[in-house]
């Protein structure tokens, strides 16, 4: 991390681009009957900033995270796009072009980009102690003696707020509470001081109090180390609390991208508005029904024609939305992929 800041001075202040994903496309299945899980995802991770990625289950959030790291489960495969690490610098690498099992990409995994998982119980193996699993992550990237790696692991566990780390290092995951397990998961992701962190629903499996503690920890670590954090969630509350910028995903595409304040103040896409309406509000009239989004997420193999959201959209323009797809959100720019939003942008330009 320290090295990174030195080779790239001012990265934190300028919010320099750490990772640029362009037109990422992922398909599942063989040639016939294959399903497009990601269809042209573009996003940027910037030093010291948090990008929130939000959407319903099955919209491709987790697939995005795995595609970036080249660890898609078969039959998933990358069919297009670029994943640029250190874009625009002399060290620029296109991760999508690297061999998924090659040494170059493995050095990035865990070394430059850390991954935090949703289920801290199942993401850790029950057969090894937490120390064993973290030490392994350290020694995969650094030549350290076992003793030195163990000392570093104790420090990591202390840093993520685990009490009595010198004892807990020899505990098995099932001997820890859910909150402590997720702290172990974070320590494991931070083992080699990556400057990019991808957190895939890190608090979904935790109860509310623990959730708040884990988010606060993530926030503190991210700010202290100037990490570029990609936070995947389906919880608009988490987005509001954590994110600087937000990408809203629907059926494998980004349908809206905006800084967090503007997204909450003036959501452009009807889907974003619907997501926001479905958040429970403490000031709501007692016993009022919580708004839901009608219908269900279509199967990616049966993507609706035109705008994929039109069957569930309350503001659908008959004769237009079901036939033509609105243009995608331009990479790195604020906007929404919706005919309504296009008119708004055009008016603003004029």
């Amino acid at each position: 991390m320290v090295e990174q800041v030195m080779t790239n001075p001012g990265a934190i202040e300028s919010g320099g681009h750490m990772l640029s994903v362009r037109d990422l496309a992922v398909e599942f299945g063989q040639d016939r009957g294959s399903v497009r899980a990601l269809d042209g995802i573009s996003l940027d991770l910037r030093a010291g900033r948090v990008l929130g990625v939000v959407g319903e289950s099955g919209c491709g959030k987790s697939v995005t995270a795995r595609a970036i790291l080249g660890i898609l489960d078969r039959p998933g495969r990358l069919v297009g796009g670029r994943v640029l690490l250190d874009p625009g610098t002399s060290a620029e690498q296109n991760l999508a072009a690297l061999d998924p099992n090659g040494a170059a990409l493995r050095a990035v995994r865990g070394g430059r980009i850390g991954l935090i998982f949703q289920e801290p119980m199942t993401a850790l193996s029950v057969h090894y102690t937490v120390g064993n699993q973290i030490i392994e992550a350290i020694r995969a990237h650094k030549t350290l003696s076992k003793a030195a790696a163990r000392a570093a692991t104790v420090e990591l566990l202390r840093e993520v707020g685990i009490p009595r780390p010198e004892l807990r290092i020899d505990a098995y995951p099932f001997q820890l509470s859910g909150g402590l397990r997720q702290r172990v998961g974070i320590a494991m992701a931070l083992a080699c001081a990556p400057d990019i962190l991808i957190a895939d629903e890190p608090t979904t499996a935790l109860d509310v109090t623990t959730q708040a503690q884990i988010l606060a920890l993530l926030r503190r670590l991210q700010r202290d180390k100037g990490i570029a954090l990609m936070l995947i969630t389906h919880d608009m509350g988490v987005i509001a609390q954590m994110a600087d910028d937000v990408a809203v995903m629907y059926l494998g595409r980004i349908v809206e991208f905006a800084p967090v304040r503007r997204l909450f103040a003036a959501p452009r896409h009807p889907y974003t508005r619907a997501l926001l309406r479905s958040v429970p509000d403490i000031r709501a009239v007692p016993r009022a029904r919580l708004a839901t989004i009608g219908g269900t997420v279509p199967h990616p193999g049966a993507r609706p024609t035109g705008c994929a959201f039109h069957p569930r959209c309350q503001e659908m323009i008959a004769g237009r939305c079901e036939t033509t797809a609105p243009s995608p959100v331009p990479a790195g720019l604020e906007g929404a992929s919706c005919f309504h939003a296009e008119s708004v942008v055009q008016e603003a330009v004029v």
């Binding site: 660890i71 489960d73 998982f117 193996s125 057969h127």
Partner: peptide, 26 residues
């Protein structure tokens, strides 16, 4: 197919190491 396999891969371990140490053991 278990998540701990993915998390072992995400550490940057070689595929052989990942498979033999975690899922084969289990």
């Amino acid at each position: 197919r278990k998540p701990y396999v993915v998390s072992a891969r995400a550490k940057g371990l070689s595929e052989l190491h990942v498979v033999l140490k975690y899922p084969v053991r289990a």
